[in-house]
Design a protein around this nucleic acid. Structure first.
Lengths: 194, 194
DNA sequence: TTAAAAGTACACCGAACAGTATACACAACA
DNA sequence: TGTTGTGTATACTGTTCGGTGTACTTTTAA
């Protein structure tokens, strides 16, 4: 039985999809209303401005993205060879690959948003910054069981690889970017092994 | 003595700066005209549409970016320690660092453009793809004197690191991203050494 | 000198933009 | 029953958007 969604949730869901697929500034309020079948007044009863809706969409995306990645990591973790301590972090790069090859892939929504809202103090830009921090934290967790010389430094390097792969896959359509990043990641992990 | 610029060049120069600093869709034709002091009719005598101006701005940026990077690489090449064969590629990451810390830094203009024009067939998106390919080729050159087991694979890994650093520096304002990437790069080069 | 090329000013177009006003419908709940 | 909260439709605001039409001026080069 389908859970009845509030109008607010419907708006955020539709907005998130359109923003991700086509961009933020190019997607008008009216387009979102058409796709969601909600009245304009209702939108502005829930959100003070388009920017607020953008923030809500990004926050929703943040939750869904983390859930997706964690699901894939759990799935690919079992398929890793070698030392089981490394299974989770290596599965992360397989998770990226799965994401890149999905038909809806259009880069990282937060990197895209940062490009369209470059002012560092802009609430939208701040949300993106926070998301990236969250991913870094997650990567830290994934390597926490491995005994490494400088775990924080390693996490940063892997996070950088992750972003590089995402951008590469998006702008140059190089869908094997995740595998390349995975290769580098193994190198890094090996180098910092105690 | 200053070289007299054509109106076309003036337009492209102003457009490039505004697009890079604020974004593409947010920057209107009228704003570009105000900043350049050129008549609207003149713009549309040189360009069929705003999109054509965007492409011209990106092509100019492509030239200037490569020139900037090459200049910095030449500068930092001399300051590298260790095997001189590695000097150029390591200088590349110092070049990135210099760029990140300049006051005009606002991420990679081509990554930003890809975000705003996501359609893979869009001429604007294609220009971005070509730029990334050019950078990859340049990285290949930088490592060409080093004897490596799989130079193409290494170039891809380093290019990925480069993009990761750029994005990281832009969205999370982590200005030492280039140093982190450099550390990883040294790891990669070491691993593929013959 | 003269004629073409390039640039200007300015009014204008229809469409889209974010956001508001108003009046009405429907549901829940007390 | 009455009230309150939520959503609806529709029209409208003022502004900006990309782009055009036209008539005039300036520059350039044969």
């Amino acid at each position: 039985m389908a859970v009845k969604k509030s109008k607010r949730d419907e708006l955020v869901e539709v907005a998130q999809k359109l923003f991700y697929q086509h961009g933020f500034r190019i997607t008008g309020i009216d387009t979102i209303l058409e796709h969601s079948g909600v009245a304009k007044r209702t939108l502005y009863n829930h959100f003070k401005s388009k920017d607020e809706l953008v923030v809500a969409a990004l926050n929703k995306r943040d939750l869904e993205f983390m859930a997706m990645i964690k699901k894939y990591v759990a799935k690919f973790e079992k398929q890793q060879e070698g030392d089981p301590k490394y299974a989770r972090i290596l599965a992360y790069f397989d998770a990226l690959s799965e994401w890149f090859n999905s038909d809806k892939f259009n880069g990282c929504m937060f990197i895209n948003a940062s490009a369209e809202y470059p002012r560092k103090t802009d609430p939208i830009h701040v949300v993106c910054e926070n998301h990236k921090r969250l991913v870094l934290q997650y990567i830290s967790e994934l390597i926490s069981e491995i005994k490494l010389r400088e775990p924080d430094e390693v996490a940063l390097q892997l996070s950088l690889l992750s972003d590089g792969a995402i951008v590469c896959a998006h702008t140059t359509n190089m869908l094997n970017a995740a595998e390349i990043a995975k290769t580098t990641a193994m190198l890094v992990l090996n180098a910092y092994r105690t």
